[in-house]
Design a protein around this nucleic acid. Structure first.
Lengths: 203, 203
DNA sequence: CGGTGAAGTAATCAATTGATTACCTCTTGG
DNA sequence: CCAAGAGGTAATCAATTGATTACTTCACCG
């Protein structure tokens, strides 16, 4: 995301800022992510970040809504392929792979995790609950998961996301950590660890 | 935690500040939790909070270490009761109850969750990974869980913690939310929801 | 051309916040 | 009593940060 690009259309710039904000909020959370860090990541001025979205709060809301949108879109794409002939296990791993795809755009899942930590907030709290329930409803009703299967699926997803948030892959040489990572992430473990190698490490 | 108490010994005051900090950091996270909010919660001056612990960073470190300590202590207490005759399911629900106990002191689990979100941080990142691996090791080696059982156990714990962090119990009248809560928390659901009623809501 | 509107920024502001300092106020032992 | 040390705070600082404003630059159209 260097500063090498010249002028962009409002629409393109908007996308670029959203991408930068997703990365920054994903790493630092809402309170910890500054509009200045986002601006630097996008190669523009801090003033423009704020002006384009009105406020940091609005920007985070858009980041969160995009993230949920991507998650739901990815799930729906998989669900639409269901024939009704699959075993439950097949459905579960298909959705699991969809989830795995999202790891590539790491900020998406991490931003959502940070959103979920803001339940106390009068703005983000309701947003978090609505978002989570929306995805749960999707998996229950459209993917046809039982309450137990859906809960297991989300539980595993949350553990995987937290392992990424804490950068557990940094410890993959530790046998205990590797066991945990590969047990939790299952067959996608290798792919995810590989993806993770090019971690920005823009701490 | 009113301001009704007079002078306390350094030791008592320290405990009180740690309790206040656990609650505040649990709700707002590290970046979002101010030393001033902690001071108000403890009924003392902001200056004293900082002076007692040297820095906000040190304070959060102590909060996090205490939280992990409590979690491990609770687990060890349960594990020490194991006879070697239980089924795996019995062991799992015994540890699950131990986890449930900690919900009473809600800040503990939520502070840990926020710690886990700080994997990028040069100080808190390593702390988070060490802490998590320490508890995992405990469950694997001392409680005798297989990698799969341990992973399932942690996955469920993470989902439960996130549901608390996002205040999903506020939505318990929504059938979908209630289904999710009761499926994830299992038999302890009622007790946890009851505990949650007296949520401080000190947003 | 020239001017008009969109893209973008430098400069600056006001509020917040972690930290520091100098001071106050009890208690307690000699 | 009184000195000394521990508990504790008011006042203040410097840095950070989200937001605002006035300005600049550039593309394009008539």
């Amino acid at each position: 995301m260097g500063a090498t690009e010249g002028r962009l259309s409002s629409e393109d710039r908007r996308e670029q800022i959203l991408a930068a904000a997703t990365a920054v909020f994903g790493e630092r959370g809402y309170a910890g992510g500054t509009t200045d860090a986002i601006a630097r990541e996008a190669g523009i001025s801090q003033a423009y970040v704020v002006r384009m979205f009105g406020s940091k709060e609005q920007l985070f809301l858009e980041v969160a809504r995009r993230a949920v949108g991507r998650l739901e879109a990815e799930f729906r794409a998989v669900i639409s392929q269901f024939s009704g002939e699959e075993t439950m296990l097949e459905r579960q791993s298909a959705l699991g792979r969809a989830y795995g795809e999202l790891v590539a755009d790491r900020g998406i899942l991490l931003s959502l995790l940070h959103l979920f930590g803001l339940g106390h907030d009068p703005v983000f709290g309701p947003e978090a609950r609505d978002s989570f329930l929306g995805v749960y409803r999707l998996v229950r009703e459209e993917a046809g998961f039982s309450p137990e299967d859906a809960t297991d699926f989300f539980a595993r997803g949350m553990l995987n996301t937290i392992l990424l948030a804490m950068r557990m892959p940094d410890r993959k040489e530790d046998p205990m950590a590797f066991e945990l990572l590969s047990t939790s992430m299952g067959p996608q473990c290798e792919a995810i660890l590989a993806l993770y190698e090019d971690a920005p490490a823009r701490a």
